Simulated assay, not measured.
Amino acid sequence: MGKVKQEKKKKSSNGIVKQGIMFNKNFGQHILKNPMIITSMLEKSGLRPTDVVLEIGPGTGNMTIRLLEQVKKVVACEIDVRLVAELQKRVQGTPAQQKLQILVGDVLKTDLPFFDICVANIPYQISSPLVFKLLLHRPFFRCAVLMFQEEFAKRLVAKPGDKLYCRLSVNTQLLARVDMLMKVGKNNFRPPPKVESAVVRIEPRNPPPPINYTEWDGLTRIVFTRKNKTLGSSFRQTAVLATLEKNYKVHCSLHNKEIQPDFNIKQKIEKILTEVEADQKRARTMDTDDFLVLLHAFNNEGIHFS
């Protein structure tokens, strides 16, 4: 009882009471209240009666109930035990009860089961790690229709040369096709968030590009640290050269390759960049194919990023 009282005292700063439930801003709880947006999200996801759907952050279940009417099974992942109880209450004694599985806990720490479609109003503070958890999930799912903070959504779909184009853009677009579906005003939520939102459709590339994703991530981390600088400049940084030299020596040791006494990592990097005509390129204007060519060239010469 003491915990409940304490939470109620904090409601002015930490939550808002609606329907007997205090929404917790620490969990990013903003409940989507507009049924038209829910309808649109479900239509865009291309649901089939045989589908298993993963819903992240079902809240009070407004979208969950609609999903249960249309698909074979819904797996709902919810961190807040109070909302879990509310959701269970809504389906109790109905045919939908047998079709709903609830995973209680943090979705980032949860082993996700098989699913065909993911539909969710994402707690914004977990947006980036969640996108990559989904994209690296196996077996593949068909698509995800997800609500994000508008600027995050714009970064996901940004193209080379766009102001918001960044490492998030290129890493996501390597693994998936990403489309902006619609913008959603803050007044469609209870309580209203401080920022506008947007819905994005993510369709994993199946099969994925035949590369080591950890290697790719290491490369893009280096070049996007200073995305407006030339690649030549990015790779001349002392810390970058030291890391790549260490990785190269490990590679040579594992493959019984002799390192020449006059070996110079800086010269080797510059030679590779010149050969693929990338020395004067800037990360902000390069697309996934450009980075794939670059990664392949480095790896062929024994230069690794992981």
Score class of each variant (00 low, 15 high):
residue 198 A to G: 00
residue 138 R to I: 08
residue 165 Y to M: 11
residue 40 S to D: 14
residue 105 G to M: 04
residue 103 L to N: 00
residue 258 E to A: 10
residue 79 I to Q: 12
residue 254 L to N: 12
residue 71 V to I: 04
residue 97 Q to T: 03
residue 273 L to R: 01
residue 215 E to M: 01
residue 34 N to G: 02
residue 139 P to Y: 11
residue 191 P to L: 12
residue 266 K to M: 07
residue 188 N to K: 09
residue 43 E to H: 06
residue 27 F to G: 11
residue 117 I to P: 00
residue 236 R to L: 11
residue 219 L to I: 04
residue 63 M to P: 00
residue 110 T to Y: 04
residue 8 K to P: 03
residue 265 I to P: 01
residue 305 F to I: 04
residue 76 A to T: 06
residue 304 H to R: 15
residue 42 L to C: 01
residue 165 Y to R: 07
residue 276 V to M: 14
residue 11 K to T: 07
residue 212 N to Y: 00
residue 81 V to P: 08
residue 249 K to G: 08
residue 210 P to M: 11
residue 221 R to C: 09
residue 47 L to P: 01
residue 122 I to V: 01
residue 134 L to Q: 02
residue 258 E to Q: 15
residue 241 L to K: 06
residue 197 S to L: 07
residue 104 V to P: 05
residue 23 F to H: 11
residue 57 G to Y: 04
residue 10 K to N: 14
residue 35 P to K: 11
residue 295 L to Y: 04
residue 282 R to Y: 00
residue 131 V to Q: 10
residue 24 N to Y: 07
residue 190 R to K: 14
residue 55 E to N: 10
residue 55 E to R: 02
residue 16 I to H: 14
residue 245 E to S: 03
residue 231 L to G: 01
residue 72 K to T: 00
residue 171 N to G: 02
residue 87 L to V: 05
residue 19 Q to N: 15
residue 224 F to S: 05
residue 202 I to V: 07
residue 44 K to Q: 15
residue 133 K to V: 04
residue 240 V to G: 07
residue 285 T to M: 14
residue 15 G to F: 09
residue 110 T to M: 12
residue 200 V to T: 07
residue 7 E to G: 00
residue 28 G to P: 03
residue 197 S to D: 12
residue 104 V to N: 15
residue 100 L to Y: 05
residue 177 R to Q: 15
residue 288 T to P: 08
residue 9 K to S: 09
residue 243 T to V: 11
